[in-house]
Nucleic acid binder design. Structure first.
Length: 483
RNA sequence: GGGCCCGUGGUGUAGCUUGGCUAGCAUGCCAGCCUUGGGAGCUGGUGGUCCCCGGUUCAAAUCCGGGCGGGCCCA
């Protein structure tokens, strides 16, 4: 057998596309061969991973008072057209159902590109008093957008999974506060539990969600230097409650339109980000909490040793870890240990326990940590403690590495010359500049600097200065190429 | 939206320019032997609508047209 540990995948920083396509297939995350552009099959491994991610977000949403519901996937055309800005933004990418069997439908039905126009007509029926507010509701579902841009598995599909919340408040302040809570939820789950850092940005006026008053977005950085929007939250004002006639009585008996928000959590993209940001040349590297398999036990048999002893020892460990509630498997199939290592490395199993004659004879275990790819031999009685402690270290390690990379890839530029110079030298990265907020400047930047887009102004940083492009007064803004 | 590349057993590919052999190779999968501390070896076996539709031809994986799907670059 080979002595060296050969990489299974290319370097993701040199060739992200190839790395990504490979891991999706080899770790059996999704199947891209369904045959309809922009639509994919989630395979069991990918779907278990997805469900674990969903659970983390749903728990956090329910903790903050959100109630689950599920609205239909179809939206009647007249509803979709109610809010003018909204339909303008989505019209070009709606899938339409025009027939039932052989009969043309009297009214076309849209596959939801997002659910505001499905939900608000019902909200109009549900609420009649300020006392019934706030109402916080969410659904986890697929939405459909006929993307004309190049589709990419999980990153840009015509069908994708997300969680959407649709909240209604009596006052503007409560509604605006919700967008802050949304960001906190995102931080708690994406960063603290999944190790995915992001920029919390307020999108420029011309980049808002169609129909929103303000749009806040969460952008993360991928290995190729592009950014990916993985979540957004919007303050909708009374734009939607007005057109859908959602009205409640206030304390004095006047009829008023309440304020609303919506929040989208891009599940498919978050799954892709976890793979892309934490993964290495041996495959996926997963945080312990979401890993479909958290621990694998691999026996190492030896001629001349009683292998039943090894099996017995492994079975005991297996039982004891299962009793702790961990997702653990004992792989005593006939494949060689090396082959199993590659297999479980690819799937991002956080811990591997190797048991051979040495371990059995000394009552020890050899534990391999997927994130650092390091081995350690410890007494068996310390195993549980080791896992409890180390699973948190793994998450911390993944998160800190990702945070460092995001930070290290932000480059400041003050003037047009500085920006162009920096871009020539650094290429695809995130550029921090002052920006006047005018679309004309953004368009010029995009065409001169190979697709660099204004991603918005950071929420946690204030600052003013002359626009990097035109010199007019501006605010802080990040520029990056996006997916 | 524009440009370039690609589609052959489960997977990765050769063959295509210049049409013609039983569609070759690797890997996977199955059985057996041997082995097991980072993808072992040997023997035997299994597996193909050559993406789809149409055209040219005595003959198409190969040439032509259209479609579908995938990748890359640019807007």
């Amino acid at each position: 057998m080979a002595q060296n540990v050969e990489a299974a995948l290319p370097d993701k920083y040199k060739n992200m596309s190839e790395w990504y396509t490979e891991i999706l297939e080899r770790a059996e995350v999704i199947d891209i061969r369904y045959g309809v552009k922009g639509f994919i099959v989630y395979r069991p491994f990918g779907m278990i991973l997805m469900k674990n991610i969903i659970k983390l977000f749903e728990e956090e949403l329910e903790k903050t008072g959100h109630k689950p519901f599920l609205f239909p996937v179809v939206i009647p055309e007249r509803n979709l057209r109610m809010e003018k800005e909204h339909i303008k933004g989505f019209e070009g990418e709606v899938f339409w159902i025009e027939k039932g069997g052989y009969t043309p439908l009297e009214e076309r039905l849209a596959l939801r590109p997002t659910s505001e126009t499905a939900i608000y007509p019902i909200y109009a029926l549900w609420f009649s008093s300020y006392k019934e507010l706030p109402f916080k509701g969410y659904q986890t579902c697929a939405v459909y957008r006929y993307e004309t841009k190049a589709t990419r598995p999980l990153l840009r599909g015509r069908e994708f999974l997300w969680i959407e919340t649709h909240n209604v408040y009596f006052t503007e302040k409560e509604a605006r506060d919700q967008t802050v809570e949304d960001a906190e939820i995102f931080y708690k789950v994406a960063t603290e539990k999944l190790g995915i850092p992001f920029l919390h940005l307020k999108r420029e006026e011309y980049d808002k969600f169609p129909g929103a008053v303000d749009t806040y977005a969460f952008d993360t950085l991928l290995p190729d230097g592009r950014v990916l929007q993985i979540g957004t939250t919007h303050y909708l004002g009374t734009n939607f409650t007005k057109v859908f006639n959602v009205v409640v009585h206030d304390e004095e008996g006047n009829l008023v339109n309440p304020h609303s928000t919506c929040y989208g959590i891009g599940l498919s993209r978050i799954l892709a980000s976890i793979l892309l940001i934490h993964g290495d040349e041996y495959g996926a590297v997963l945080p312990f909490d979401i890993a479909p398999t958290q621990i694998v036990i691999i026996p190492i048999y030896k001629a001349g040793f009683e292998n039943k002893e090894i099996d017995k020892y492994c079975n005991e460990i297996h039982e004891s870890l299962k009793n702790e509630g961990y997702r653990v498997i004992f792989d005593n199939s006939e494949k060689t240990p090396g082959e199993k290592y590659y297999y479980y490395d690819m799937r991002g199993v956080p811990f591997r326990i190797e048991i051979g004659p040495k371990e059995v004879q000394t009552s020890k275990v050899t534990v391999f940590r997927r994130d650092t790819r390091s081995r350690e031999t410890i007494p068996l009685e310390q195993l549980k403690e080791y896992i409890v402690k180390t699973k948190d270290e793994i998450l911390k390690n993944l998160r800190e590495k990702a945070e460092k990379r995001l930070k290290d890839n932000i480059i400041e530029a003050r003037t047009k010359e500085e920006l162009i110079e920096a871009f020539k030298k650094e290429g695809r990265k995130i550029y921090k500049v002052f920006f006047c907020g005018r679309k004309e400047c953004a368009d010029e930047i995009k065409s001169v600097l190979e697709g660099l887009e204004t991603r918005g102004t950071p929420i946690n940083e204030k600052g003013e200065g002359p626009c990097v492009w035109c010199g007019e007064p501006g605010h802080i803004c990040y520029l990056a190429k996006a997916y």
